[in-house]
């Protein structure tokens, strides 16, 4: 088995998760809540994308943009309706509200869209690299022949694009700098004249846009149904927490760790345990919380 090939798979999986995990973790950092309904934001994005691609004569990239806008709008509306009014109550009530909202949204989508899975119509090309030498260590090959598909490249490309855009946003724009300031110390930011509500709204929109993109990416690889996003929420959450909640750069690192763990443990765990790969991801999360409770990026989460 080629290690390199599995690393590629892990990086692709990590890229899906990363796009979503950034949105998740930004909300965590600025609004100070774990949003359990975030998986449904992905689902909404996937449906908007599918509907656009299916009804309008536009190419897929345009449909993706529409899905991102749709995700952003949905996120802002939901935040205004459900989260902003209880902003002051603290993390636990907000977490529980998001659980309730998630149940409601998921079933509402099922009610409206029905139960059948739908598919994006895409073509995939495969690029193969042969003649790569095996570098054997015991039973494993470190290199070996490998392939990538156009889908892989699109996903990783989107993720890298998001990372660059995000970095630019956070370091070069007023809104981004204000976001970082608020993430560090909200009171201080308010004293310095930051309109905290406006920043919160921008974060909600940004999170929704990213969820829309992630939703379509996941949907192209799998399908669109009421459970599309929900089935990935735990991985997104694990990646965000692993990276140190609130830190977008940490979330990126956390996502790739989760992606690699999923892929490598599926490939290399002893027989009969391969399906435990998702449990492995959680095990890593628990271990990281114990060893370095602040996550990969430093922020204290331990109280005593």
């Amino acid at each position: 088995m080629g290690l390199l090939q599995n690393v590629i798979f892990g990086l692709v999986t990590g890229s899906y998760i990363a796009v979503a995990a950034i949105g998740f973790t930004l909300v965590y950092g600025i609004v100070n809540m774990i949003n359990f309904a975030y998986g449904e934001y992905l689902t909404v994005g996937a449906f908007v994308g599918l509907l656009t691609a299916g009804t309008l004569p536009v190419p897929l990239p345009v449909a993706v943009l529409v899905a991102m806008v749709g995700g952003g709008v949905a996120s802002l509306v939901l935040a205004r309706l459900f989260f902003t009014p209880i902003n002051h109550t603290g993390p636990v009530p907000m977490l529980l509200t998001s659980i309730g909202l998630g149940i409601a949204l998921r079933n509402l989508i099922r009610l409206v869209a029905g139960r059948n899975a739908r598919y994006f119509d895409t073509e995939t090309a495969t690029f193969r690299l042969t003649g790569v030498p095996d570098v054997s260590v015991g039973p494993f090959d470190l290199l070996g022949d490998f392939f990538v598909t156009s889908e892989h490249l699109v996903v990783v490309g989107c993720a890298v694009g998001v990372f660059l855009a995000l970095h630019g946003l956070l370091t070069r724009t007023d809104v981004g700098i204000a976001m970082r300031a608020m993430g560090d110390d909200e009171d201080l930011a308010r004293v310095r004249g930051v309109d905290t509500q406006r920043i919160r709204d921008s974060v909600w929109v940004l999170a929704g846009v990213l969820a829309g993109l992630a939703g379509v990416l996941v949907a192209i690889q799998t399908n669109v149904s009421a459970g599309t996003g929900y089935s990935h929420i735990l991985q997104i959450l694990a990646a965000a927490i692993l990276g140190g909640a609130g830190s977008p750069y940490g979330a990126i690192a956390g996502s790739y760790i989760i992606g690699l763990v999923l892929s490598l443990s599926t490939a290399f765990l002893p027989g009969g345990m391969a399906e435990l790969s998702s449990a492995m991801a959680f095990l890593i999360l628990v271990v990281v919380l114990l060893v370095k409770p602040s996550g990969l990026a430093a922020r204290e989460v331990r109280e005593a």
Binding site: M1, Q5, F9, S263, T266, A267, A274, S278
Partner: peptide, 18 residues
């Protein structure tokens, strides 16, 4: 070779590789 996988994963490529 027998490989068991979870349902609804976004990718089964590692399982296939195995």
């Amino acid at each position: 070779q027998r490989v068991e996988v979870g349902l609804g994963e976004s990718s089964y490529q590692s399982a296939l590789e195995r």
